[in-house]
Amino acid sequence: MTTLVGVLSFVAVLALAVILGYLVVKGASSLDWNFFVKNPVPAGQAGGGVANAIVGTVIIVGVAALIGLPIGIGTGLYLAEYGSGRFGWIVRFVADVLNGTPSIVVGIFAWTWLVRPMGHFSALAGSVALAVLMVPMIARTTEEMVRLVPHSLREAALALGYPRWRTSLRIVARTALAGILTSCLVGIARIAGETAPLLFTALGNLNFSSSILQPMQTLSLQVFTYGTGPFDEWHRLAWAAALVLMGLVLLLSLTARWALRSRHGAAR
């Protein structure tokens, strides 16, 4: 039995190692200065980079975080501190359902309610779709982190004459801060690579754009467009973009782990 589960875990690790290794083999050689700072060149030509996609990813994910994090954190805090009643149960249930919703379903709603009324694709619609994906995830992990704060701390604050809301913010949320930050980073990492909901919201853009009301490129869309395109040059860039995206997500995950580990040093 031990051997069996050992072999199975080896297969799991192997899969990850193969993916990472293959990405490095196929993509690393295309990573040069131009890749990061140049915009795409017309199809068929050599050279060019994906600066538009990198900037686009930062903008779209950033706006999504701006919308999603406050709502998610607030909901999580509410669930942990006041969510023992019926309403809390409903919110928790909805969040769990939303958490399991395929991202393409969220995308089509964003398309129906934002892209169609606005009349055109936009980065903003993509950000909203990503924010919707983010909120239930952030809410539930924040709730878990806040619940880890010992009840005795709440009591101590209340006995000292803290009002309930101030206890929640000043004592409980502050104590859980490292955990909440971690859940935010994990949430951001999770949406950074999303592609499906962006296909019919942000759409993608082969040119540089920094207007959130216009179509915008992201690394994930770039991988999709270039990877399925007809040119070898595009395939090369798709691998490199995939490698950068993977590296970005890995970096966020590692930062999250590091933040959680150093939580006890918070007051030093």
Binding site: P150, S152, A159, A266, A267
Partner: peptide
């Protein structure tokens, strides 16, 4: 509760504060 102070079984210093 500001007029009646309370101390608990286990020490409960606020961990994020000096």
């Amino acid at each position: 509760r500001r007029r009646i102070g309370m101390v608990f079984q286990r020490p409960t210093p606020f961990p994020t504060m000096t």
